[in-house]
Structures are given as C-alpha cells and as structure tokens.
Design a protein around this nucleic acid. Structure first.
Lengths: 144, 144
DNA sequence: GTCCTTGCAAAACGTTTGCAGTTCA
DNA sequence: TGAACTGCAAACGTTTTGCAAGGAC
C-alpha cells in the first residue's frame, strides 16, 4: 500500500491528509533503514524546511496507533521506526544501533502464551542482539 | 545464588560491597514483579532513607553489565528490571505495563540469524504483548 | 466555519553525570 | 591510604504538551 492510499484510508477515521504526513510516511515506506525520529525529521526538513520535530512525533504516534508502522525501542537508544509491520524480525547492533531485518515465518506461540497466562495476546516481538560486521571490523582495527 | 554471594563474587572484579547494593539486589532477587527503577528506589528508601535514585541506577547498570540482571525496556514506559536472567520470556500488558514470566526453553535461532546477516549474535529477546486479565476485566466494567 | 493540524517553545520524563564528602578494603 | 561509592543536584536526550496561527474538508 502506498503512503497516499494509507492516508486516504485514514480519512474515514477523521485523520486529515497533510503534505507533511505524506512526506513522513513515504520516507518510511521507501526505506529499510529503520530511522530514528531525528533522522526522519532531517529528511522531511529537506522538503519542508519549516517542519518541526513535534509534528514528526505526532505523525509517528498516529501511524503507530493505526498499526501502519512499528516502533522499535531499546533501553539507551532512541526509538527507531519501521514502515513494514509485516512478517519479519530484527537484528540490532549493540554498538551502533543499526537494525537489519530477518525474514522468517512468524512464530506461532501466541495462542500458547495466552492459554498459559490468561492474557489476550495480540502481538509479539522477537529481536536478536549482536555486533554488526562493520562494528566488528572497527573493533579489530582498534585492537591493533 | 543469593545477593550476598553475587556481591562477594563481584569483589574479585573490584566492585565494592555496600549495604545499598545488597538491599537493591535482595529486593530484585526476591520479587517476580519486574519493578521499575522508581519502584526499587521507593522500596530501598524504606531501609535506607538517604538513598538516591542515582545510586539505584548506578547499581542496576553495574549488575546489568555483569549479567546478573536483565533490563526490559519499552517505548513509552520506563525500563523494568528482572533479577532472574535465565530461561524465560515475557508477556507485557499494554494497558498497565505489568510484565509476567513465560517459562519456555530458549529459541535456538541465533546461529541461523548470524549466518544470514553476518552479525555476531550474542542474545535475543522475545516478548508478547496483550491485555492482562485484570485490565480486561476493568475494560469490560467501563463499557457497562 | 469547524476542528484538526502545524510550528514553536517550554516542559516533562527517565536516566546520566559531576562533584564533594564518605566508606570500604 | 586510596580507590570506589554515595547523595545530591544539575544536565542530558528523547518525547510530549500547550497554544496561537494556519489549513483541510
């Protein structure tokens, strides 16, 4: 689904179509780099110099609530956003914060978790932590 | 392992034994509620009225670095800490933030992920999201 | 015309840091 | 004794909020 299609669909829910929102969503849909709010801000600013970080966060939260994007948050780094909330998991570098996708059929554990805990389970998150090839190479160089 | 045993073991690494650290670690080991730093702070304050939040964070970060506790972080909520970093996963309530344990053998996907992405994978995290029985009951009551 | 959204600034939040004084080994 | 730790307060970075002006429908 394109950014315009998603935003038109959101109109029924009282969400207005604005060029800033279009730019934010188009950027998110067109990249697989899992950008931070700050990175989205800088990118959108190129097209809309007056845009503010507040608007970025407003839009991201709105899109997140409607299930069109995913927020990936870690303890000491800022959140990253993923415009493709579909069948994949994440591998995060604990040194530079980069996140890459790992495609794999989604785990079918949710029903089992629900029956064991009494929760109404409506999602899960699976992430792997490690050191990316670039950071590993940099670390080796530092040692010499 | 008890709090005292863990702290004695850390002495070899130059970590000093202090009563504040003992209180923090004993509380974490003795609960399965996955408290926030703030909750730990209030609890330890009952025994050590002069303790500061900074000390709580200092100790938690030290214990985390040595692998004795786990930090569980989410987008819009503060981190929660888990004193039992062993074979289990988590189920988090998206309404009240409560986290309960789900015991299950750890997934054996890390090697596969490493060979697909080039990362040196050294850990993973699997969490389920849903509504806990208490929040579900409250929601139903609200509707009537 | 209505009311949602924007941009800006200030505030809030959880967490970290700097420092002077204290405590552990 | 000396390095590590504490408590306090100030600072930090990310995210949210309040509000007047602007724009979508």
């Amino acid at each position: 689904m394109t950014a315009i299609e998603i935003l038109k669909q959101l109109k029924d829910k009282g969400v207005r179509f604005t060029p800033q929102r279009q730019a934010i969503l188009e950027f998110l849909l067109g990249t697989d780099t899992h950008p931070t709010a700050e990175e989205i801000y800088h990118h959108v600013k190129a097209k809309f110099p007056g845009v503010s970080l507040g608007t970025i966060y407003n839009t991201l939260n709105m899109l997140k609530e409607h299930g069109h994007i995913l927020e990936l948050s870690y303890g000491d780094m800022s959140s990253r956003f993923d415009g493709n909330p579909s069948n994949h998991y994440h591998v995060a570098c604990t040194e530079c914060g980069k996140i890459v996708d790992f495609h794999r059929p989604l785990l079918e554990l949710e029903r089992e978790v629900g029956s064991h805990t009494g929760f109404q389970v409506h999602g899960h998150r699976l992430e792997f932590y490690g050191v990316c090839p670039q950071c590993a190479a940099r670390d080796i160089k530092k040692m010499n």
